[in-house]
């Protein structure tokens, strides 16, 4: 399996993700600068990392969505290969219209860095097939523009199509919904995929829950393993 991590000016989780997947996946990792127009190593998985691409100015992800590499990402997506956007990476995917919706400022108007509990809502995609629906996992969040927004009719379409993959939840009861979304996301949405299930965007950081000696928990390990399994079962592309 080959992975490319796209680095934008202002990305800050690129190295974190590189370390997390090097630890958990049998994958060769390439770091690709946003000005490139193609992926030279023909990756199976492209990851857009968190951080403050272009300072987060104007709107988070807006300027990164105009980078050279975006065309190559769209080509990659069209081939049905995997794309994962985490935090700012999710924002970039929505700005580039590879995923529906927008991430707008948290209702608290503050940055929020906390552990967050997510209910797995859907396993028919290339990222969460190793989970069971209803599993609750803990991935930390760290964002200022993390409120998932979509106009009501489109939101219904998204829900009906089963594109909501992660929803904020109560760690004890496992119940999910808007009331557990610290930033005020509509329907408590934390992560979504496209209809084909090959593009996933989520605000929480699975890479921060990958090392047991660190303070973010270990629930991310199963997430990475699930990607590897989905990839293995398909026997590559």
């Amino acid at each position: 399996m080959k992975t490319s991590i796209v680095v934008f000016p202002g990305s800050s989780c690129d190295r974190d993700i590189e370390r997390a997947i090097s630890e958990t996946l049998n994958t060769q990792v390439d770091m690709v600068w946003h000005e490139e127009t193609t992926f030279s190593n023909d990756p199976d998985l492209v990851i857009l990392p968190g951080g403050y691409s272009f300072g987060g100015y104007l709107r988070s992800g807006a300027m990164a969505a105009c980078s050279n590499i975006i065309e190559a990402i769209k080509t990659h997506a069209a081939k049905g290969k995997m794309i994962l956007g985490i935090a700012n990476g999710f924002q970039i995917l929505t700005e580039a219209q590879l995923l529906p919706g927008a991430l707008i400022p948290n209702t608290s108007l503050t940055f929020i860095c906390q552990k967050a509990y997510l209910r797995v809502e859907q396993t028919e995609n290339m990222f969460t097939s190793d989970y069971k629906i209803g599993d609750v996992v803990q991935f930390p969040i760290a964002h200022h523009e993390g409120l998932y927004f979509l106009p009501p009719s489109e939101l219904k379409e998204l829900e009906d199509a089963g594109q909501v993959v992660f929803r904020y939840a109560d760690p004890v009861t496992g119940e999910s919904g808007a009331e557990y979304a610290l930033e005020g996301s509509l329907n408590g949405i934390a992560g979504i995929c496209n209809k084909k299930g090959n593009i996933l965007g989520l605000m929480p950081h699975p890479e921060r829950a990958t090392f047991k000696h660190l303070n973010g928990g270990v629930d991310g390990i199963a997430f990475w393993k699930s990607i590897a399994k989905a990839f293995g079962e398909r026997g590559g592309f």
Partner: peptide
């Protein structure tokens, strides 16, 4: 206060 700061980026925080 501290929940407004990213205390986990760089993936090396053991105690924050």
């Amino acid at each position: 206060i501290w929940e407004q700061y990213d205390s986990m980026v760089q993936l090396h925080t053991i105690m924050g």
